[in-house]
Design a protein around this nucleic acid. Sequence first.
DNA 1: CGTGCCGGGGA
DNA 2: TCCCCGGCACG
Length: 401
Amino acid sequence: MAAVKSQAGPGAMQSTAGRKKEGLVRRCVQENADVQKHQQNSILQSSPGLGEEWTANSEQSNTLLFLQSSNVNLPYRSPESVEMDEIMAAMVLTSLSCSPVIQSPTQRDPLPHGPLDVECGGGELSDSGSSGYWSWEHGSVSPAPSPSVTETESSMGQLADEGLHMEPELGARDELETRRCKISSRGAYRCLWPGCGKVLTSRVGMKRHIRILHLGGPEQSHREEDFYYTEVSSEEEEPTPPSPSLSLTSGPWSSCSSTPSQPTSAEAPPSSSALSQSAPSSVWQIHAEHLYQLTHPCAPIELTISPDSASSCDWTSAGLQLRPQISMSRSRSISVGEQWLQRNSVPSRSHTVSASPSRGHCSIRKGRGEAKKCRKVYGVERRDQWCNACRWKKACQRFPD
DNA sequence: CGTGCCGGGGA
DNA sequence: TCCCCGGCACG
């Protein structure tokens, strides 16, 4: 709380035009930063008797944490926390995508054994499960992964600054590219349509499958199909630790789902071709499901958190923030798809997926903060002293909430 | 009803 | 890009 307010100070004072949007976004986000964190913590802690398994997961959860933060809200988090996140993130990514040698055990809570085998060792290259950020540049000396902890740390400030703007997009894009590359080599495509876990080996085939079977029409926008399938590479599936993301998410989710059914078990894939995949497939479905839910503001997330300041804004950003996690576990085309989804709000062919309340009612508007704005402070007659934003009737920059 | 500000539009 | 404002949500 206090943190939030204090942050607002300096940054906001230099009210330059360029910042407008940033400011807007921030406001949503900054609330979130805290909230999210709490959520994270609570989730992390609340998992009771998972013993080892949990430790294995914590790695992932860290990643999650990072991804969340990297998404948007960096600017408003206390520097320390940012640092921590960054560090952790770096480490996690590093460890996931490179040989275990690199990772230094310092600062890492999780135990550096066991799990690694499953996550990294198993597949040819970690990449898969872990957002294949750097990984695909197998080249041993690829620029990315190598930085040691200290190095990372030292460049932290800069990182935070730059990453702030670039990371969300670049990350996503990168990831996409990465994935594309990798996948083209070998992989399967799994239909994410709820209730259908179909796996095909060709993208085209998958698209067709989706288009015809699910979208029920010959021609929809192409991106659409894109959204309903995901690439998986045979090996990745198994190692992909479903547990972490699941255990993390499912809690809140299940409780929240105004959605008719939890696809996990309720909807068994009709024609599950490969038995071995049944499990993963449900996982996928869940991911997909969550994705959708996230897309829709009315989704639950908040349940774990304080309901107060939670407005539509929170929902949205929450969704945004979780996205990476999902993609992390290897469902692609998410960003695109989701965007699409948001735009079109999945009209008729909803199914379970569309627990969507028409997005209309959850507007982007946020409750008004109690901060005094220029108008109040200076009064209407001194309008020329208002910050630009206020003058333009935009979100106040000088006194952000 | 005052206020904050989104979304849209003009210059 | 700067600026303005209609209109809406919130309190």
